[in-house]
Amino acid sequence: MGAAGGTIAPDRILHDMADLWVSLGKQGEGDAGVLRACSMTLVVAAEESDDPQAIGETLAALMPEHPSRAIVIRFRAEDRRSLAARVFAQCWMPFGHRQQICCEQIEITASDASLPDLTAVVLPLTVPDLPVILWCRSPRIFHLPAFPQLAVIAQKVVLDSAAFGDSAAVLGEMSGAAAAGRLLADLSWTRLTRWRELIAQIFENRGQLANLPLVTDIMIAHRAATPTTAYYLAAWLIDGIATTGARPRVQFRSDGGEPAWRLSRVEMRAPGSADAIASIALAERHAAEVRVGGLLNKALLPALTDYALMREELAIPGRDPVFERALAAASKLALS
């Protein structure tokens, strides 16, 4: 279902969606029909060159857990104003069930010059009473002058600072936006969840918790030029250890290699001890080796696909105070 060449009318899209549900209902077998599911509006801002199949697959994988009305806006670097749209549905049949579950997807193609017009198009397409999350997949789009007008319709904007290049600059930019009241999420922070969870688990043990004030040195090894993940982890560790009154030093170490954001080792040390109080090192096959108190444990780290990262972020549509604190501290650390 396409729309007229240079403009699109939200009413027309909504009408097309209503038709879509009627036709899906007719396709349903017997009484089973289709079940419409929706827990949010997910707006995806992507470059036209961004692999449409990869985005489609990510959204399809997200739908069963975060059923959403997805609005994918594909931007073309063009000065002429142009907009086009089509609607379709993502459906799945849960194993062993007779009933299909479907979510709506709207795809809008827009030139950069049309960005100021987009808010008026997207706003009526959002599902009433449910959160709107904007996933911006491109630093270029984020930096378009009219982007804040689009961002204002979303409760939360999801970015990936790893795509921005200069860690200190992007952390400063994000920290400034957060201080101004914008709710942000960063997939580079999401990539740290399993590392942070392993660290938190170490200090659930009261014996280990007693060692925390002794930590004087933190070493974080990463692949290339200090990525935002390393700053985030350092800031979060310092913040946690500071609650005991200690102020550990942080050393970043580059091991080289790709991807740049990947961490390879974290150590927490006390003076006068050959062994680290705790260390986590990346091992083979998405695993991490955790050494603590003379015990070696192995934990699996799930693959960090776009799907896995967004799945976690979409589960937090509101404020994330731990991230907000880490972002502010990481920004200061990166600039120091």
Binding site: R196, A200, P213, G240, V322
Partner: peptide, 13 residues
């Protein structure tokens, strides 16, 4: 000794 683990993140863990 700290009474609480400062690294907990109930939203995510």
């Amino acid at each position: 000794m700290p009474l609480e683990n400062p690294f907990q993140d109930p939203l995510r863990f």
